[in-house]
Design a protein around this nucleic acid. Structure first.
Lengths: 224, 224
DNA sequence: AAAGTATTCAATGAGTTTATTGAATACTAA
DNA sequence: TTAGTATTCAATAAACTCATTGAATACTTT
């Protein structure tokens, strides 16, 4: 057994190895989808597996890799284990990877158009614009994500009607003012589908591309 | 052959696959070291291989993976091919990964101390502090990186004396004012070695932990 | 205590990534 | 044209990653 001192070069390699561990934990489509879901709020393994279309064992395996890289934290609550993002910095890192992909890989825009086929079908509203109109009381902000995600954090003054409840809760929405629908962000179709429904029912509607994290990154605060 | 429309779920998977491509390109210690070097300025394959301690063929292979992920750009200049970072966002992403690793993996601090053994041996100066003292003319800012990196971008008012030239160019430095040495950033030993030399020669010295990118991220501009 | 549910573990084979080697290519200089 | 240099390509074996399966573990409810 050798007790020689480790040469500096070896330590430098070790540092890069540690950095690469973070990247490696994120270098898989399923794990990114899991992180993307977790960014909207904590979930059980079962919920994550269902939403990401994975077998439970496979989801568990991927979650444990994320956990080993300390990107997520798990916590047992009775029968279920809940996973959540370990640090807001991790969510930001995921968004950063997405932004680099958007900017460097042309294929992203093409695939996004194929996924969000109605992307250009509705009026859009920009962040600053929304901010101003909300203050004037000219628009109603509608969060169409599942209830738990709204509870985990939402835009100020947004009301929550999950997409699946939208048809039967139309009465809660004003017919005079424009309804601005948002969901998880630019890679989510929930708000497109809501906009489709609302348009069909004769309401005035616009889609906000941004979700809670994009809103925060733009420097605005979430609801208390 | 089928001409059926691709289901939305498939497109969603394709999106995550594209995002994962960016992460996968960075999920290797050698490629991160190459990116780290390139962040300080463009280089030839040969220089990169030498500095990252890789065989030429291996360095080339890794550089091509980075290129396929569109994180770097290559350009032939005569006999040599020069690689550079494709977009400042890529450098930021690398720094972001590093920051997450720092914050989430305890091992990083341990390994950094083993690599930069003199880390705590010299006076340190904080960014804002430096900014103020530079304006008062109380300190001299010294960039000890190789000449080409200084040329690719440096802090305002910094003078360039590459580490290997430091001993024989001591006369160029004032003995009354404090010399603030900096290099590639907190994971680089060049400035530690410079501080060691300067201290030994009886000059007053402090080390700045930040490099050009950390400086920029703090909201300051580089030299014109 | 027994039965039931959620999650993880362990083992497997298919696919991917890596370092190494030597040959091929693209350019420059003589 | 030839010789020389920088870089990439192609082929290989070893190491890793992934999805799948069925068993094991950790809780809750009865």
């Amino acid at each position: 057994m050798s007790f020689e001192k480790k040469p500096p070069r070896a330590n430098k390699q070790d540092l890069y190895r540690l950095f690469a561990r973070i990247a490696a934990a994120m270098a898989n489509p399923h794990r990114l989808e899991l992180l993307d879901l977790l960014a909207q709020g904590p979930r059980t393994v079962e919920a994550l597996a269902r939403e990401a279309n994975l077998s439970i064992a496979n989801a568990s395996q991927h979650l444990q890799r994320l956990k080993r890289a300390r990107l997520v934290i798990d916590e047992r609550q009775g029968l279920y284990i809940h996973y959540r993002i370990a640090d807001p910095l991790v969510t930001q890192l995921w968004l950063h990877i997405r932004t680099v992909a958007e900017r460097r890989l042309d294929q992203v825009a093409v695939t996004l158009d194929a996924y969000r086929t109605q992307r250009h079908a509705f009026k859009r509203i920009a962040l600053d614009d929304l901010h101003a109109r909300l203050r004037e009381g000219k628009v109603v902000l509608l969060d169409v994500r599942p209830r738990a995600e709204y509870a985990a954090g939402h835009l100020p003054s947004a009301i929550s009607i999950p997409l699946e409840e939208l048809e039967r809760r139309l009465k809660e929405l004003p017919r005079r003012r424009t309804i601005v629908a948002y969901c998880r962000g630019p890679y989510c179709v929930l708000a497109d589908e809501a906009a489709e429904t609302l348009t069909r029912k004769g309401l005035r509607v616009a889609r906000l591309e941004e979700g809670v994290h994009e809103w925060q990154q733009a420097g605005y605060a979430l609801a208390d």
